[in-house]
Nucleic acid binder design. Sequence first.
DNA 1: CGAATGCTTGATGTTCTTCAAAGGTTGTGG
DNA 2: CCACAACCTTTGAAGAACATCAAGCATTCG
Lengths: 242, 242
Amino acid sequence: MAVKCDNCPLRELEIFVPFTTEEARFMKGFKIGELTVDAQTPLLIEGSNAPQLYTVLAGQGVRFKTLEDGRRQVVNFVFPGDFIGLQAGVMGEMGHSITSATEMTLCVFDRAEIWSLFKSHPDRAFDLTWLAASEEMFLGESLATIGQRSALEAVAWTLQRLFQRGEALGLTTANEMPLPFRQQDLADALGLSLVHTNKTLAKLKDRGMVLWQDGVLGILDRTGLSDVAGIPMEALRPRPLI
Amino acid sequence: MAVKCDNCPLRELEIFVPFTTEEARFMKGFKIGELTVDAQTPLLIEGSNAPQLYTVLAGQGVRFKTLEDGRRQVVNFVFPGDFIGLQAGVMGEMGHSITSATEMTLCVFDRAEIWSLFKSHPDRAFDLTWLAASEEMFLGESLATIGQRSALEAVAWTLQRLFQRGEALGLTTANEMPLPFRQQDLADALGLSLVHTNKTLAKLKDRGMVLWQDGVLGILDRTGLSDVAGIPMEALRPRPLI
DNA sequence: CGAATGCTTGATGTTCTTCAAAGGTTGTGG
DNA sequence: CCACAACCTTTGAAGAACATCAAGCATTCG
């Protein structure tokens, strides 16, 4: 197993605030291994109390909740740098499930160590709270999108957000990035039917704004998309990396 | 100003995990005052960086986001025991606004002290993270409700959740609790129009499940409501009080 | 080659929105 | 103390956005 904390590729990215050397040393101890899983592998299950926490090193996944009758709500998409399992880590229960969409590589941490993190590394504990608050903020925006925006606006909003994350993570080349999800995933994220999502995507494509084919998302008209999405196309703010 | 930490009425409630005496002493120092505001007073503004954090001692309020064009999404309702301003506290910016719906009394904390909390009181810091994760979990459920449930299910779900909170906080008498919001607030919480929300409420009323009139919510058929809501009517789990 | 999966498109329904208006309550100024 | 405005709730009617149903097409995989 490659212990890569020191030369973790994610640390190079501007989106992540730099570690101090002391922090890096602690994180190396906090880490207990590395995990690689295939696409479509369940990582965490809603309602369960996972013994492990992860930071995504590579690959994409999906966070989702399942209702009693099988309806599915995609809560967010998972990208490199995301810390997953925090809810189980602090509350003892996950509020949603996470499944890989591609092959994924994860940094594995011991859930039992989280308390020692709070006791001996207040700066890292603060970062953890920062991440939780950040996720809360994002879910608030998602709520506003699903609740208030039309299907066209919502799809534009989501694709733009995904692209912004892709850019921050260096996944883009020119105006394209890999987007290894199904239209059904997007539909479940927006509370729309697959059919209507498909037709809405077609509308954005007809307008020459985006093109999402074969797992690749292309942004053809940034300002046009931004107008429909109702948010500016700007860089994401730096965030801590756990 | 009454320094009431020691005999804070909220501490009596089972929903809140008890303070240790040491924690209580620290909280007393963390607290810098008490604030009472009228109904319909803005407490925190989206995008701003509030210098103060609050714990709600009494009264109700509304968390909401406003879109560029004025559409409003109610993110959650605010009840006694809620800690507000955490996003500004850790990220330096609020993701939503908060306005009082009734007269409210708030415990005021100094935002600058939050860092000392992390350094010297890891247990309290952990509680803060717990709260953030808990809010994240709730927003995930809300997302699933807005995205997947029908109007009838969504209204039932929301009223049940509100009543569960009311019970945990001792606001209920028999099957009633004060619910000082407008139908428009509920509509904005669910992404529905006011008209449709009204008609949906009438439907639940016709079925003899709930009655919401003159600021009082009555639950007439708990099991029936629970069935429509799609979640069990059970007590909320204990949570930390900050 | 057949089966499975995901994308696409047309036709038909239903949920929900918008528009419009009226009734009840509260507060305020004349 | 009445008149009037402001606010919230309620109800009916018409229209739009989105869901459901159904089927065809392409690609992948065993």
